[in-house]
């Protein structure tokens, strides 16, 4: 894990609606450093997931990338080569990431052999990664199928697979939205620990400013496909500049019966 900066530059994504092109992501640029958490926040439908998908060359059918590039430490890389090797991913619904008829062991081997990692080394790595993800009895876990595991265990398993790839960056798209508060807190603590201990660079996609408050170092705010503000987390909470950011913070604080610090 020696890469230090991931730069997403000028990503645009469009779809066709009623025969004419519709821009869904508009010239988005983000910079993510090693050992930092950059939160990408914004309302449902603002384009957060498509930004991640475009960066990794996994856009859903019906959408296409019209501009943009991704580079690591200054060299532009072919986007399809980024996945797993440089950027690991975890997402909102870990259950959907696992094939129910395969064991965790089979998933791990498939992920690691696709990276050209020899089986013996891969098996060793996954055992360590499972422990590092806070799960006990890795040998037993590896024999389980997804339906035999809780959502929280599956999300930890996703994190374990991500760690086993030794990718320096992690895209986490709403990783705790489907989990209960207690498991959410454990997963967020785990991500925080990995950021500090392994210098993992994490792009954290979320709509919850509580998650941002807990974990983020910097925040990029998205609205209607554009980045409207990027700032250190303290500035976002204390002095949000863009009206979208102000509304996000205001709504969030109203949950705690606090009013916004922002004027």
């Amino acid at each position: 894990m020696t890469s230090s900066t991931l730069a997403i530059e000028g990503i645009s994504v469009e779809t066709a609606r009623h025969g004419s092109p519709l821009v869904l992501v508009d010239n988005v640029s983000l910079i993510l450093g090693a050992g930092e958490v950059l939160a990408l926040v914004g309302a449902n439908g603002s384009g957060k997931s498509l930004t991640c998908a475009a960066s990794l060359d996994v856009l859903p059918p019906g959408t296409r990338m019209t501009s943009g590039s991704v580079s690591i430490d200054g060299s532009v890389l072919q986007r399809s080569m980024l996945r797993a090797r440089h950027i690991a991913t975890i997402m909102q619904n870990p259950r959907s990431a696992f094939n129910p008829v395969r064991t965790m062991q089979e998933h791990a081997r498939e992920t690691l052999s696709a990276l050209g990692i020899p089986k013996a080394e891969g098996d060793q790595r996954i055992l360590q990664a499972i422990r590092a993800s806070g799960l006990d009895e890795p040998e037993r876990l590896l024999r389980l199928h997804s339906f035999e595991m809780s959502g929280g265990m599956l999300q930890r398993m996703m994190i374990a697979l991500a760690l086993a790839t030794e990718a320096p960056f992690l895209f986490a798209d709403e990783p705790t939205t489907d989990l209960d508060l207690i498991v959410q807190r454990e997963i967020l603590d785990l991500l925080d620990h990995l950021k500090r201990e392994r210098r993992l660079g994490i792009l954290l996609v979320t709509h919850d400013m509580g998650v941002v408050a807990k974990l983020a170092d910097r925040v990029a705010v998205m609205d209607g496909g554009r980045i409207v503000e990027t700032a250190p987390v303290a500035d976002i909470f204390l002095a949000p500049r863009h009206v979208t950011t102000q509304r996000l913070v205001e709504a969030h604080l109203s949950l705690y019966n606090l009013s916004g610090v922002a004027a």
Partner: peptide, 11 residues
């Protein structure tokens, strides 16, 4: 105890 914080820790 697991409720998320209203503000970043430093604040």
């Amino acid at each position: 105890a697991a409720v998320l914080p209203p503000m970043p820790r430093q604040l």
